[in-house]
Amino acid sequence: MIKEFIQGLLITLKYLGPGHTTTVQYPRKGHRLQPSDRFRGLHRLVPDHDREKCVACYLCPTVCPAKCITVESAENEKGEKYPKVYKIDLLRCIFCGYCVEACPVEAIEMTGDYELANYHRDDFTFDKKRLVR
């Protein structure tokens, strides 16, 4: 019985040693975790040549259950519809991903970016400049 007990403890001890640990000293050692592909972090507006892919169809603010997306459409020089204003209020966002699902042109996606803490309320408003990456 003692033999089995020691065997078990050895396994435990092995995982205490270097190379086997899954605990990360976050954020002290500057580790960045790699979340899964399906993780729903900060939004990103997909760029397309000289502009954003978004055509300001208003489906994302319509579907958004938290009402955190503000879109204002306008006409650019080429006569195309584009979002003059695109803002996400992350304080209200619930990261449900419905905006991504609703988008007919795959212009918005959610990245693995999870470090979203900040000091000022205003900093949680992500405008087009911060979203198009």
Partner: peptide
């Protein structure tokens, strides 16, 4: 082009 058509 429903996404950009105002009739949508």
């Amino acid at each position: 082009d429903c996404p950009v058509c105002d009739k949508g």
